[in-house]
Structures are given as C-alpha cells and as structure tokens.
Design a protein around this nucleic acid. Structure first.
Lengths: 134, 134
DNA sequence: CATACTGCTATACTTTTGGATACCACTATA
DNA sequence: TATAGTGGTATCCAAAAGTATAGCAGTATG
C-alpha cells in the first residue's frame, strides 16, 4: 500500500489528460454509426437531395433511420433542410460549408482503414476485389 | 419513369464511390465505442501496464469490458499481451509500433471535436471548464 | 378515380453495447 | 492461516442502435 513499494505510480487518465475525451466523443457521435458518413458523403457529392432521393442513394437505409440521422446532422449544423416552394412541396437537404469540414476526418478514417486492411487481413489489391460487392 | 422526365439522375453510393465505406467501417470499428481510445491512449502513454493497473488508469471500466477490448485490440495488432516470468505471473500489455499509427486518427478526431464544440455549443474557454470533471 | 410519387411517422421487434455483481485460481505477505 | 493483490471469467440485466413493416397526408397523372 505504501508508495515506496510501487515501482511506478500510474495515475488515472483524467489526471494525466484532463477531459480530452470530451471532444473526441463529440466527434465520434457524428462519425460513428452505420449511416451518418454515407449521408454526409452523399450530400457532399450531390449538393442537394430530397428525402426519397436520399433513400435511393444511401442504399438499404430505412426511412426511420434516414429521418433520424438527418435531424441529427441538422442539429449539428452539418446540413440544412429547406422546404422548396414547389407543387407538390419538396424538401431539399444540402450540406453546409461547415459540414464540408467533415471531409478531413473521413479522409483520415479512410486512409487509416485502408492501411489497416493491408496490415490485418494482408489485403492489397487482388483480394481487395472480394470486398467490392462480391 | 422515363429518364427524360428526371432533371438529374442520382445514382446509389456504391455506383459512385465503390466500396469506400469498407475501410471506413474498419477504422470506425477500432475507434468507436466507449473504451478503445482511452485504452490505446493509456498504453501509448505508459508503455506497459498490467490488467489491474489498466483497470485503475482507465477509470470506471469494468473487468469484462477491459478484457473484451484488450482482446480486440490484440487481434487488431495494436497491442501485445506478454506473460512475464515473475512470481506471481504478471501480464504486461503494451502498444505496438503499428498501434502508434492510431495517433493521427485520434488527433484528427480531437481537433475536429474541439472545433465542433465551439461551433455547436459556442464554447471557447470559460464554459469549457464546466466540462472538466463536473 | 385509381395509381404513384413526395416526405415522412408509428409500432414492434432484434441486435449490439455496456454495466453490475459475483466469483475463481493463484501467490505473497503479515 | 486470514487477507490482499494478480488476471481474469460467468451471469444476468438495461439501454441504445438498428431493422421490418405498415401506413398516412398531400399532390399530381393517366
């Protein structure tokens, strides 16, 4: 129990790093999950999409998840929802300028992920094809 | 239904981007969740730790989660588990050289997360303190 | 007036994630 | 020989995340 007996005293993370995990968790909330990155990517590419359009672009997503994630992304100022004055009324979802800052994070995840596949599964080019659809 | 009628034809993500989500998901598997980043960070800082030591450093983690995540990180070549020839037997968990490549991803998540807090919660320095501890 | 398109919501699940608690074998120390 | 430290496992449970399926109001279009 005496500190003399311990060769090295290792303090808890918070003492060492403060609350560095708080912003990391904020970021993870935006980028983790099955659908947020695909939606952000779709809107980064297409500028503006309707709800049903997104349902088709982001394959296999259910309307419930799409609706939920769009609200989340809007709350986080990454996209906008605009009601267009057309008949019938259409909605256009677009990425914001701020939303485009996600690209650097997504690129880093992609880059690391590619290296990770090489390292862990020893996949370079050939076997890689297996992962494309099938 | 005719393509003439559509002003713009938006193709599904896979057609546009192939399987770019595969490595992104691989990366997210490593960096998402409540405990992986804290564990990686702890081992990046302390070089080598025992199980009970990690239980104290990574605050509030249960042995079940710690055990599970350590196995996962080992399977992903990010850490090593070495049985030391001591009495009693001790185990030393260490980060691998490869494991250190996680740093660039975690830094990017941190950097973006800090900006995101500023943007969304309008938090700069003062209110920030609220997030430290309690 | 039936059909189909838009932009969703509602309900009932299943799966995944993580937490709580107890406990185990082994070894050292007082 | 009781106590405490090491490195975990086992069991049960709650909450979160995601899926499946149905439906609805409004507006066209044939």
């Amino acid at each position: 129990m005496n500190s003399k007996e311990k060769k090295e005293i290792k303090v808890p993370m918070k003492e060492q790093f403060g609350n560095y995990m708080v912003p990391v968790r904020d970021a993870l909330e935006v980028f983790s999950g099955k659908w947020k990155i695909p939606i952000i990517t779709a809107l980064s590419f297409y500028e503006s999409c309707g709800f049903k359009e997104l349902e088709r672009i982001v394959e296999d997503i259910t309307p419930k998840m799409l609706s939920k994630e769009l609200k989340f992304l809007e709350d986080n100022l990454l996209i906008t929802r605009k009601v267009e004055d057309t008949r019938p009324v259409t909605i256009s979802y677009s990425i914001t300028e701020y939303g485009r800052t996600c690209k650097s994070v997504m690129s880093e995840l992609y880059r690391w992920g590619v290296e990770h596949r090489k390292k862990v599964f020893n996949i370079e080019g050939k076997t890689w094809d297996k992962c494309l659809g099938h």
